[in-house]
Design a protein around this nucleic acid. Structure first.
Length: 197
DNA sequence: TCATTAAAGTTAT
DNA sequence: ATAACTTTAATGA
């Protein structure tokens, strides 16, 4: 968890509920601090043709939309609920009041920002490759890096193929074909549609 | 080779 | 039942 929920609430945060596919904030809007109590949220963009690119998927205890609070810019992404969600929202000014009172909280937020930045660096490397297998492996390597067990097939990918495609800028069909190919190459194992890496 | 389109099978709600 | 996801195949850039 980035910041203790009770601290956020006493600082004036409101709890908001969202249903799947409901938007939490839009690209171009003024940022606030959001922290997910429960549920999954994706940060995304839609290109000119309407194809979705998912920037990130966040869940319980993680913050969304904090990335640009420290500069005077508008959101470069949308935040959309994937599952049913409870989210705490704290206005930017209240958020900074809170941080000014506590160096510990400042560090928590910095640490979370670093983690997000790390994800971006890792993903950027693999996404710069034309090869879909390298892109998907970059994603899976990052996901698995949060787990201790490094043995093959020990990590269950909890993303749909659709989501994996949207996170790597591929079309679903290519993602599916590539994952099938990775199965033949013993890079992943597939058990009743679940991907083990 | 990958994206796109279409069509059909499968799973979840 | 209906929508969302998965899969295969054909076609074109």
């Amino acid at each position: 968890m980035v910041i203790d929920e009770n601290i956020l609430i006493s600082a004036g945060a409101e709890t908001k509920h969202y249903i799947p596919s409901e938007t939490i904030f839009f690209e171009g809007h003024i940022p606030n601090y959001y922290q997910i109590i429960k549920g999954e949220v994706k940060l995304n963009n839609y290109n000119e043709e309407g194809k979705e690119f998912i920037q990130n998927i966040l869940s319980d205890g993680e913050s969304c939309g904090e990335s640009i609070l420290f500069i005077e810019k508008l959101y470069p992404v949308n935040a959309e609920a994937i599952t049913e969600c409870s989210v705490l929202r704290l206005h930017k000014s209240a958020f900074f009041n809170l941080l000014n009172q506590s160096p510990e909280l400042y560090m928590e937020v910095n640490s979370f920002l670093s983690e997000r930045l790390y994800y971006k660096f890792i993903m950027m490397q693999s996404l710069s490759s034309q090869n879909p297998s390298i892109r998907l492996r970059g994603l899976m390597d990052y996901l698995k890096s949060s787990q201790k067990d490094r043995t093959p097939y020990s990590f269950l990918i909890l993303l749909t193929r659709q989501q994996m495609a949207s996170l790597t800028g591929l079309c679903v069909e290519t993602a599916i074909r590539t994952i099938k190919h990775m199965e033949r190459d013993k890079i992943v194992r597939i058990e009743n549609r679940k991907i083990l890496y």
